[in-house]
């Protein structure tokens, strides 16, 4: 399976189509950190929200770069379960690259500052919470991107619709007091939780919520894939 993951990452990186989501990510981060200095944890919470659609879009591009027949050849070689898993793992690896950029970027442009007031988190603690926030966004984004990929949606229009719907859902259902907030991954709740001190129970709830959301969506992806090679 590692060979297939590497093959797909190579296919994604060599076509140059990898450039589009990276540019979009940098642009978004540039706008986000253009306003001034913020505390790392708080800033990273917002960064994870704005990167969510970019990560989902990147996943869709990565999965769609491979021609349909080549995907079927891979399926014949490794079997359906590993073929699907390899695509998702490749998307996670590519996503981790973008997450790393998102974590480093604010320090390069002076978008975040170290602790200045009593009660501010230390820099390592802030970065760790930022990493956690991005790692919550990543599985959900990969799941949404997989659901928007060509093998499921079959047309570019439906693909974009799935991505848009997922992103709008994150924002529309993410405000406190929203009806049925669990229909969306908890990106805005995570961002809100990172503004003040973060209780362990809240962190655990958000983690379980994000992973469960991704698991449900990925189950849907796998079920549709049993009928669509």
């Amino acid at each position: 399976m590692t060979a297939l993951v590497r093959f797909r990452l190579a296919g994604f990186l060599r076509t140059g189509r990898a450039l589009a989501p990276v540019m979009a990510g940098l642009l978004t981060l540039g706008i986000l950190y253009g306003g001034g200095r913020a505390q790392p944890a708080e800033a990273y919470g917002v960064s994870a929200v704005v990167l969510f659609p970019v990560l989902a879009w990147q996943t869709k591009i990565l999965l769609d770069v491979e021609p349909d027949v080549q995907r079927r050849l891979a399926l014949v070689a490794v079997g359906p379960a590993r073929e699907q898993a390899a695509g998702l793992v490749a998307a996670v690896v590519a996503g981790l690259g973008l997450v790393a950029v998102a974590l480093v970027f604010p320090w390069l442009v002076g978008g975040v500052a170290g602790p200045s007031l009593p009660g501010d988190l230390s820099v390592p603690a802030g970065v760790a919470l930022g990493l956690w926030a991005h790692l919550l966004a990543l599985p959900a984004a990969v799941a949404l991107g997989a659901l928007a990929s060509r093998v499921i949606t079959r047309s570019a229009g439906y693909g974009v619709a799935v991505l848009t719907l997922g992103t709008v859902g994150v924002l529309a259902l993410g405000f406190s007091g929203a009806v049925a907030p669990w229909l969306a991954p908890p990106l805005l709740p995570t961002a809100r939780a990172l503004v003040g001190p973060l209780p362990g129970s809240t962190a655990l709830l958000l983690t379980v919520w994000a992973l469960a959301w991704a698991a449900v969506v990925l189950t849907g992806y796998a079920r549709v894939r049993t009928r669509r090679a």
């Binding site: 093959f7 190579a10 076509t15 021609p67």
Partner: peptide, 21 residues
């Protein structure tokens, strides 16, 4: 029809497919 729309050389592609197998 072989899916030729891929950014690999003949050698690179066959080697990758062998590793995948």
């Amino acid at each position: 029809r072989f899916p030729a729309d891929q950014p690999f050389t003949v050698d690179g592609y066959l080697a990758a497919m062998a590793r995948i197998a």
